[in-house]
Design a protein around this nucleic acid. Structure first.
Lengths: 131, 131, 131, 131
DNA sequence: GTGGTCTAGACCACG
DNA sequence: GTGGTCTAGACCACT
């Protein structure tokens, strides 16, 4: 299970870790029952304090995405309820619409602008290094 | 020039003020050379710390959207370059695409999801009080 | 808003703080919009590390029981959904029944035992120093 | 003597083993002088670390529920004092009352809630797989 | 070894 | 002043 963070990212580190795990779930990179790196191991790998990793894991556990077996480690939980994928996309869309409205744009204007951007994007693909 | 803030909004207050000014520009509610309320007046009206208003005006000045005439007050600047409206929409779209990509969604998936949401929205309009 | 902890209690300190706030809500000791003590103030009062208080507040916020206004402090949220009181009692009952079943007791046996204990209790009231 | 554990249970494994033995005593599934499985055998059967079984047996011995004959193995002790069954039920009740009080519920409220739950339960019996 | 909790002390954004 | 995040280092329970 690969987890990467970006110190230059404005999101808190623990949030980046949370997002990375959700991402792995959405992409199918990781499967239920897969073990996550141990708190200490991931902290060492990311050169980050164990507490920071711990906080990320705590939030993931509270969200029901992972669970821990005492003394054994942390594992991906079996999914339940609406797919995490759908939830995530819904959140992104809702935020975008709210942001757009704030400046007087109607959702359909936003939709068109995203479409245009999506087309541009498909010509020059793979915008590596997404911040 | 009407500026409203919402204490329950998750954005910092100074950011809300900035956004309100940009919004007024985009919507045409305010025009270049219109005076803004003085820092003290706005702070009093919004029941907010003057430092907070000051910070908002500082950001707006840095962005070239307002300027100060010494001893006279603060005024909306004349637009220059691409319209503020376009800039704002572009920002919103870029952010949405970045967020989506973070979880493995391609821009075209985002565009479709926004489209669906926009259609739903047109049936039940006027989602007042956007938080 | 009075918050007390007991170092000899087996629950983690942050959990005790969480429970104290829920308790105050249930008892009506505190009302929505009431300010909570600041993180630093409560930490000093309880002679506990600010991080510990912070963790408690974070959990309460996630549960929707409190909210924070940037730079102003933390406040009790307006209740929503089924009353916190009902939720809490349900949790206690479910746990008791589960514990009882684990040793072969049927719920009605548990109910009778609790009744007997409740009667005993009403004769010699106020079992001070509940741990 | 049958002992089962559940990895998904939140109780520590050693505690689950302890509870299983007490349960067997209470239910009459096992009788005084019955031999317990050897530490190694049980550890192998449960696919658990021998240290974990050892810790469970240590606690049981401390509680006087089992005893060791050197070179022969471990055996259930003869009951003494108030029946283990009563002790267990008392513990469960005390805990429930303490938890309830913590949130301002009086024991009689708890008793009523347990009664209601018990009635609900008798209609839809056999809540298999209690976690 | 694992995760869970806590302390001490720091820096940041916001008001 | 407020809360939010992070580091460093410690001790504990469990396997």
């Amino acid at each position: 299970m690969l987890i990467r963070i970006e110190l230059s990212d404005s999101r808190p580190i623990y949030q980046q870790i949370v997002d990375e795990v959700r991402r792995a779930l959405v992409l199918g990179t990781a499967s239920p029952e897969d073990p996550l790196p141990s708190v200490r191991a991931l902290a060492a790998e990311l050169r980050v304090n164990p507490n920071t990793v711990q906080q990320a894991y705590r939030e993931l556990e509270r969200a029901g995405l992972i669970y821990t077996r005492r003394g054994q480690g942390t594992f991906l939980a079996a999914p339940s309820g609406p797919s995490e994928r759908d939830l995530l996309l819904r959140d992104v869309v809702e935020r975008a619409i709210r942001d757009a409205r704030r400046f007087g744009f109607e959702p359909h204007e936003l939709a068109e602008a995203v479409l245009r951007a999506a087309e541009l994007d498909s010509s020059s693909p793979s915008t590596a290094g997404v911040p």
